[in-house]
Design a protein around this nucleic acid. Structure first.
Lengths: 146, 146
DNA sequence: TAAATAACTTTCAAAATGCAAGTAATAATT
DNA sequence: AATTATTACTTGCATTTTGAAAGTTATTTA
């Protein structure tokens, strides 16, 4: 399944990979909700079907956004972890949430309004680096300790 | 066709509207390439099919991202113009291009590398406000002249 | 050794996408 | 005034993607 790009425009090319209903939701779950196993994702609020999840994880791996690995002491459970390329999607997520917060509340009044959003409102970059740092710490814990 | 939101997460809710192959491409064409008529869009590099274009323009209008109008002296040609809600998508586009520029070049070597990208690299906010301003000027010209 | 769990795959129905052709209204040309 | 061209669609149909549910295999736990 080799990725095809519609044209040479950088905006469009990003959407050739990220432009769908699920890819960035999965990245969000990894970065902000700490999800890392197949089961974690199936138990999400968004309720992704297992066949779709399987296909999207494959695509994310092929695009170098995540890697698939295992813990040394567990042969069963796969771990899906963000690469640097995946972590670099954080600012996109931040801008998506910022836009929702400011422009989607009238269409979707029940939308959440927690402390995370308040930080995004006040300082997008701080939000991004907080979660990037947290994820990197988790990575070193996961990859260099049994 | 009333929009359904999967859950109350702001990230996911943004993707319920923006998460597809075409929506943000159309917004990009309006903001950066000055496209505003049905014909403009069909002539784009990305070659969107007319039935899809029609459906997506409807969706964009229903979501308050664009408005559909006409020039006073032309009853034939519809104009599709970004609203404030649509203009507010600029930072998302900027982050998408920034990510492409830094993380997609090895997968897509032919991707463009023009002066716009160089500005994004140097100053994202300047890029965004330049095009927002330009678009607002076009809007006042379009809406308040003959 | 049996039961439970994790990670899929398969099947099939439904929805979205995409190409090609057709239509209706307006505008321009002869 | 009649003909032609343009713009903005819609329709029909084939292909692709998505989604729900059930089934499979390997590993781990009791």
């Amino acid at each position: 399944m080799n990725q095809k790009f519609r044209c040479d425009c950088p905006f469009t090319s990003a959407l050739d990979i990220l432009g769908d209903k699920w890819i960035l939701v999965i990245v969000k779950q990894m970065l902000l909700e700490g999800k890392e196993t197949f089961k974690d994702f199936t138990e999400s609020e968004e309720a992704i079907a297992t066949n779709i999840l399987s296909a999207k994880l494959k695509l994310l791996e092929e695009s170098g956004i995540i890697i698939k690995t295992k813990r040394p002491n567990n042969k069963k459970t796969n771990l899906y972890l963000l690469t640097e390329r995946g972590l670099a999607l954080t600012p996109i997520l931040v801008e998506l949430a910022f836009w929702s917060d400011h422009h989607l509340r009238d269409l979707h009044p029940k939308m959440l309004n927690g402390e995370g959003l308040q930080l995004i409102r006040k300082d997008k970059a701080a939000f991004a680096s907080f979660f990037e740092k947290k994820y990197r710490e988790k990575l070193t814990n996961t990859l260099f300790t049994e």
